[in-house]
């Protein structure tokens, strides 16, 4: 009896250990597969040509594989989404954490969480039907599916992460800070902006990093509103992101084109890893 129990104990211990290391295994597996399938094309095309080539013409008779347009589009699109989304989300977070009565805050927070749960294709659909025609008419363009529309959709999509993480960070600031500031004669609003927000800085930075991660990785919604042509980015031109480059050509690609798409994914993955690294450093700094 004792031996059987001991055997079961050991087996379960091993099983749990395996489960525990599964996440590590998955990360290694994903990295491995991306590197192995992404590197050959980079080698074939040449890393300088690949990363800094300005022309992507994968199906032309003399194909050219330069992904600079995708990289820049992703960077500009994310930057634009951050510029619009972060101030909006941050102000809202401050407002519901410190200024409004509690039940209003809870209601708005619920709305924000709901916004975060909406599937990206629904954002894409609404963007396609509402934003794209709106942009076309307002700016008098032949087609409204461009970088600007994508930035608007992305800005809305990053709002939930920005609001919820910033709000949590702002709420976590010790009450004494606020009381001390109020006692010194600062108004509530001054206290919030000059004492509480600086104290919650690292949480707010985390929320921005999450927003960057979300917007640089978004594929489907962006694909539906950005027009999907491999132009060098410009606000009112149809553009293609790193993510949409992978998604749009994968289904019919072959040969070097297909390999090059894996390389694009590898570049995207590296971007995400860098953002995660920065995020981790920020969080670590905060803990210290």
């Amino acid at each position: 009896m004792k031996r059987v129990t001991g055997f079961i104990e050991n087996t379960m211990g091993i099983i749990f250990t395996v489960c525990g290391f599964l996440a590590v295994g998955f990360v290694v597996l994903i990295t491995g597969f991306l590197v192995v399938s992404g590197l050959p094309a980079i080698g074939e095309i040449g890393i300088i040509q690949f990363l800094f080539g300005r022309v992507w013409a994968s199906t032309a008779s003399h194909p050219s594989y330069g992904i600079l347009p995708f990289i820049l589009t992703s960077v500009y699109g994310t930057a634009g989404a951050i510029v619009i989304g972060v101030p909006l989300g941050l102000l809202c977070a401050i407002f519901i954490a410190k200024i409004t009565p509690k039940h209003v805050g809870i209601a708005v927070r619920g709305a924000v969480d709901l916004l975060g749960g909406i599937p990206s294709v629904v954002y894409g659909l609404v963007g396609m039907i509402v934003i794209v025609p709106f942009v076309r008419k307002t700016f008098n363009l032949p087609d409204g599916a461009n970088l600007f529309s994508a930035i608007i959709v992305l800005a809305v999509m990053i709002l939930p992460s920005v609001v919820s993480v910033s709000e949590t960070a702002i709420r976590a600031v010790p009450k004494e800070y606020e009381e001390a500031s109020l006692a010194l004669g600062a108004t509530k609003t001054e206290t919030v902006f000059k004492v509480i927000v600086p104290a919650a800085k690292s949480g707010i930075l985390t929320s921005i990093a999450l927003g960057i991660g979300r917007s640089i990785g978004e594929a489907m919604a962006v694909m539906m509103v950005s027009g999907n042509v491999a132009n060098m980015p410009s606000l009112f031109k149809s553009v293609r992101f790193l993510t949409t480059a992978v998604a749009s050509e994968m289904s019919y690609s072959s040969g070097l084109q297909r390999k090059a798409l894996f390389s694009v994914a590898l570049v995207l993955f590296v971007f995400i890893l860098i953002i995660n690294l920065i995020l981790n450093l920020v969080v670590k700094k905060e803990r210290e």
């Binding site: 994903i30 991306l34 998604a247 994914a265 995400i272 953002i275 995020l279």
Partner: peptide
């Protein structure tokens, strides 16, 4: 760290790696 990395990977990469694997 690995779990955090996994949760930060965008779904299009999952799609691609899922296809490969």
């Amino acid at each position: 760290l690995a779990t955090e990395t996994l949760s930060g990977i965008p779904s299009i990469i999952y799609g691609l790696v899922g296809m490969l694997i």
